[in-house]
Amino acid sequence: MNFRRRTLAVSAAAATLVLGGATSAFAGIDATAEAAGVKVTFHSYGDYFKVCDMATDSGNPYADVRYTNAAGSSRTWRHQIDKGSGNCGKFDHNFGEGRTVLFRACNDTPWLPDPCSAWKTGVA
């Protein structure tokens, strides 16, 4: 009888740790934007962008990035690659956890304006 009580107590303690005792980490939101000849993916785990050239069009794909930190300061970046079709570039950041990141995929072409996707939203 004493063994059953101990087993039940240990089982209850283990369930508490698994179900509610541990704190959960914030899960970010990944997102992808695509335009003519370019694919841009935001990876929330690691806070980085991957910019890929998807066409043999002599354009240089890039990501336009907008970010506002918790203090209200805004920053913008342009992450461009010129490695040719089938190649990608990785651009690391250190955004605040849970912060929104706006970005779009564009292709730097000889004519203006550059073709760009709609703005996408990721969460760090």
Rank of each mutant, 00 (worst) to 15 (best):
Y67K: 08
L8N: 00
V65P: 08
G46K: 05
D57G: 05
D47P: 01
Y67W: 14
G37T: 04
P115K: 03
H43N: 14
G37M: 03
F49W: 01
F26I: 03
D53W: 05
G37S: 08
N94Q: 14
W111Q: 13
R75F: 13
T100C: 00
G28M: 04
A124Y: 08
R66N: 14
S117Q: 07
D47V: 01
L112T: 12
W77K: 11
Y45K: 10
G122M: 03
K39D: 01
G46F: 10
S73P: 00
A70M: 06
A15S: 15
G96S: 15
A105L: 06
G37E: 05
G86Y: 05
M54D: 07
G122S: 08
Y48N: 05
Y67N: 11
F49H: 02
N2I: 10
T56F: 09
A25L: 12
S85G: 08
D64A: 07
R104Q: 15
D92Y: 15
V101R: 08
D53R: 11
F103R: 13
H79R: 12
T76D: 15
C116S: 10
A33F: 02
Y67V: 09
P115W: 02
L19H: 02
G28L: 01
W77T: 07
H93G: 07
T23P: 00
D53Q: 11
A33T: 04
D53Y: 07
C106P: 03
V38W: 02
P113T: 14
R104W: 01
V40P: 02
G59N: 12
Y67C: 07
V101K: 09
A25D: 11
Y62T: 04
C116G: 10
G59E: 04
H93Y: 15
A35T: 15
Q80K: 09
T16E: 00
G20L: 15
D57I: 04
C116A: 14
R6H: 04
G37P: 06
Y45M: 05
D82M: 12
M54E: 14
S117M: 07
W111T: 14
A25S: 14
R5D: 02
M1P: 01
N107K: 12
A13S: 06
T76Q: 15
H79A: 07
S74N: 11
N60P: 00
L8W: 04
Y48D: 00
G86I: 11
T121Y: 02
R75M: 13
R66Y: 13
A9S: 08
F91A: 10
